[in-house]
């Protein structure tokens, strides 16, 4: 097997607030294989966006990478100088920010913003940049004559395509997309995901998709990394995650999602409670307070991410009982109050 394109090991990222350290990402480890789409899934505040931004080190000033490594093609993204990092941005790793729809500058034509990347970062001449910009627009399915338009002249879905075109500008090896289809309606969402899959296949790139939506992961991601309260709690192929989840949080996420392919509507079961305060994380497993299967042991000893069967890692003390827990997790009464 070839080396993964990106290998994250024991990564911790801390926000330093006066008198308080908030550990947003806590000893996270996972790999992004070459030519794959990896989903980073979890609810708001789980650290997925912080981690995604760390891959291009565009984290805020009070955020510090306190331990761990991010090995990208032989370079440790946590250690390289700012100058080296800057060389990688756009050229090797491109970031599509959350609500990319709003990340375009409203007062400049889209063409100008494309040229900033192509000429400023890619060192192209004006005519090269013009040709490349037209080519990129075609790749994402927008007519090249729209390059002269301002962002407000595009619909939300088209602006999202423009943001993806920008990310592709300099042929990066890795695209990190933060919630690229949230806020879009189902038809546009599907068309954008299809486009991303086609581009990934044609160009052989890798994509990290940050999302809170497991249906997005189910549709497009080869592998999925589930995060909870700053920690990676499960990591495996997406098909395995959906059919044989090992972590109770993953089981719960599936119950909470309406499935139009199912015979009836059944009852959707929320995971009651809220994630812990990351400034004062609890002892033991961070999910224990919301977990219907938590034992005393879970509340005192923190489980570590361990390999469990083929290519499947999980951080749960009861992973060896997963099959029985899955059966129980499918029953709404297991999760207590559904309101």
């Amino acid at each position: 097997m070839s080396q993964p394109l990106l290998s994250v090991k024991n990564l911790s990222i801390v926000y330093e607030v006066p008198n308080l350290d908030v550990v947003a990402v806590s000893r996270a480890s996972f790999d992004v294989p070459r030519g794959s789409i990896v989903g980073l899934v979890g609810e708001s505040g789980c650290g997925k966006t912080t981690m995604a931004r760390a891959f291009t080190r565009i984290i805020s000033d009070n955020a510090k990478i306190t331990e761990g490594s991010m090995d990208f093609d032989g370079k440790d993204l946590a250690k390289i100088s700012e100058r080296e990092m800057n060389d990688l941005r756009w050229r090797d790793i491109a970031f599509v920010p959350q609500s990319a729809m709003n990340s375009l500058d409203p007062v400049y034509r889209v063409e100008y913003q494309m040229h900033e990347v192509l000429r400023g970062r890619g060192g192209m001449s004006r005519s090269q940049a013009k040709a490349r910009a037209a080519e990129l627009f075609e790749m994402v399915g927008i007519e090249a004559n729209r390059l002269r338009d301002f962002p407000h002249q595009f619909s939300g879905g088209m602006r999202q395509r423009v943001a993806i075109a920008l990310a592709l500008a300099l042929n990066p090896k890795l695209i990190v997309a933060d919630e690229p289809v949230t806020a879009l309606d189902v038809i546009v969402q599907r068309q954008i995901l299809d486009q991303m899959r086609a581009l990934q296949r044609d160009l052989g790139i890798s994509i990290i998709m940050v999302t809170h939506d497991i249906s997005v992961v189910a549709y497009i991601c080869d592998r999925t990394v589930v995060m909870y309260a700053g920690e990676v709690v499960e990591d495996c192929e997406t098909a395995t995650l959906l059919s044989k989840p090992l972590h109770p949080y993953t089981m719960g996420l599936k119950n909470a999602f309406p499935d139009i392919a199912s015979a009836g509507t059944g009852i959707l079961t929320p995971i009651s409670g809220a994630p812990p305060d990351l400034a004062r994380p609890p002892a033991g497993c961070r999910f224990a307070a919301r977990c219907p299967f938590a034992l005393d042991h879970c509340r005192s000893v923190s489980p570590t991410l361990m390999s469990f069967g083929d290519d499947h890692s999980v951080a749960c003390h009861r992973a060896h009982e997963a099959e029985a827990l899955r059966a129980q997790a499918a029953l709404p009464e297991t999760w207590g109050e559904i309101l």
């Binding site: 189902v186 038809i187 969402q189 249906s215 997005v216 189910a218 098909a239 999602f257 139009i260």
Partner: peptide
């Protein structure tokens, strides 16, 4: 088209 576009939490879609 709207029905076909609805995302599901299944791998085999």
């Amino acid at each position: 088209a709207l029905v076909a576009a609805v995302p599901t939490p299944n791998a085999d879609q």
